[in-house]
Every structure is written in C-alpha cells, then in structure tokens.
C-alpha cells in the first residue's frame, strides 16, 4: 500500500515538474504577451496542484496535510486571477495580440 502511494506521489511530482518546465519553455518561446501568459498561467495552476497533491500523498495525516490543502486552495484562487488581471491590464493599455500569419507574410 505504501509503495503504491509513493509511486502515485512520485508520478504527480514528476508530471508537475514537467508542466513547470514546459510552461517556462512556453514563456521564453512564444511570440507575444498573450500566448506567454497563456503558457505560464495554465501550466502553473495545474503544475502547482499536481506537486502539492504529490506532497500531500507522502505527508500523511496531520497538520502538514492541512497546511498543504490551504496552500492548494490559495494557489487555485490566486494563480488564475493573477493571469486574468495581467491579461486584462495588457488589453486595457492597448496591447493587441500579434497576428502571426500577417507577420510571416511580411517576412517573406
């Protein structure tokens, strides 16, 4: 039983770490602001949740588990809100998404 739990937790941690990595690559590689916050925001919420769930599984019953649940709730509330606020602020200040098709045609 313990083995199964630690395997599941390991899988969750690995998946979470992979998502963080892919989010970072997205932030660096994507062409404009909106796609970048898309990469960061979407992966971050899931990645943080996965890592926290992985930690919860090995934490066992106790105060640590409760604290991890509280952190998970906080992340679930704040991270999408932060992405939303960023996107809205950019849109209000007049940043338009890059038209990739247009840009490629201009290059060629």
């Amino acid at each position: 039983m313990e083995l199964i739990v630690s395997i599941i937790s390991g899988v969750c941690l690995l998946a979470g770490s992979f998502l963080v990595l892919s989010g970072v690559i997205g932030v660096i590689r994507f062409p404009d602001f909106y796609t970048r916050i898309h990469a960061a925001g979407v992966t971050e919420t899931l990645a943080a949740s996965l890592i926290l769930i992985g930690l919860m599984l090995i934490a066992g019953w106790g105060i640590v588990l409760l604290k991890l649940i509280l952190i998970l709730l906080l992340v679930l509330f704040t991270s999408p809100t932060a992405s939303h606020a960023l996107g809205k602020a950019a849109w209000k200040s007049g940043l338009k998404p890059t038209n990739l098709k247009q840009r490629n045609e201009d290059r060629n």
Binding site: L74, T81, K88, K92
Partner: peptide, 14 residues
C-alpha cells in the same frame, strides 16, 4: 471605469 468583477470577487474571498 474598469469593473474588476473577477478581481473583486476573488479578493472578497481572500
């Protein structure tokens, strides 16, 4: 002017 509806609700929760 900008109605921060989502932000307001989340901040009310937080």
């Amino acid at each position: 002017i900008d109605e921060h509806k989502i932000l307001r609700i989340v901040s009310k929760i937080l």
